[in-house]
Nucleic acid binder design. Structure first.
Lengths: 97, 97
DNA sequence: AAGATATGCAATTCGCCGGTTGCATCTCCA
DNA sequence: TGGAGATGCAACCGGCGAATTGCATATCTT
């Protein structure tokens, strides 16, 4: 999942979807420097990571954010941060003794 | 920064540093499947992203977590999540009108 | 039906990244 | 001082991922 967010183009896609809501592939490609095909591939990567989902509407395919996965990433970082603080505390106590 | 966290080996390093506190390169390499050299490179990548920092102690080099950057990542995800909710609200209102 | 719009599929190219190996350097300790 | 342990430096390799191109397919509109 972090790997999915780690690409500049994909992070930009997430940002756009977050600020502009659901968009079609062509619309997303219009605002980007790369080809529509590249965008499609990136969207698939994001989908595999569970960060976006798609739905068909006529001839177009609409993509939208899936905020639960982002929440999962946040939770993970929070977890790591917390454990780090605990480790620091243990170390501090150990040194003091 | 997400790119830095996006590699499995690096994420494992972050996890270990978070649970065990500051560690030397050799110690970190001992618990990993890859070479010490690989670990060194990964640590440098993490350092460039501001996620870890190092200090010399005798002949060894101790690495520790830099939780502020992790906090930044969390904040970013929070931001995106929030904007997404707002976008959804706008969309909902627009449809209702 | 026919043109236009939106997307899908496949093959290909190219650069970067993760990993290794070999050797040099530095520091600790007996 | 000399050996062992910890790290640094540099060259090299293999594969994967990002991107493009060309063409096929589906859907809308008139």
């Amino acid at each position: 999942m972090f790997a999915a967010l780690g690409d500049e183009t994909r992070l930009a896609l997430v940002a756009r979807l977050s600020s502009q809501g659901p968009l079609s592939i062509t619309r997303l490609a219009a605002g980007s420097a790369v080809t529509r095909q590249a965008i499609t591939k990136h969207l698939n990567v994001l989908a595999t990571a569970g960060l976006v989902s798609d739905m068909r509407r006529g001839r177009e395919r609409i993509w939208e954010l899936e905020p639960e996965q982002m929440e999962a990433a946040r939770t993970y970082l929070e977890h790591v941060s917390k454990r780090w603080d605990e480790a620091l505390d243990r170390l501090k106590k150990f040194v003091e003794e």
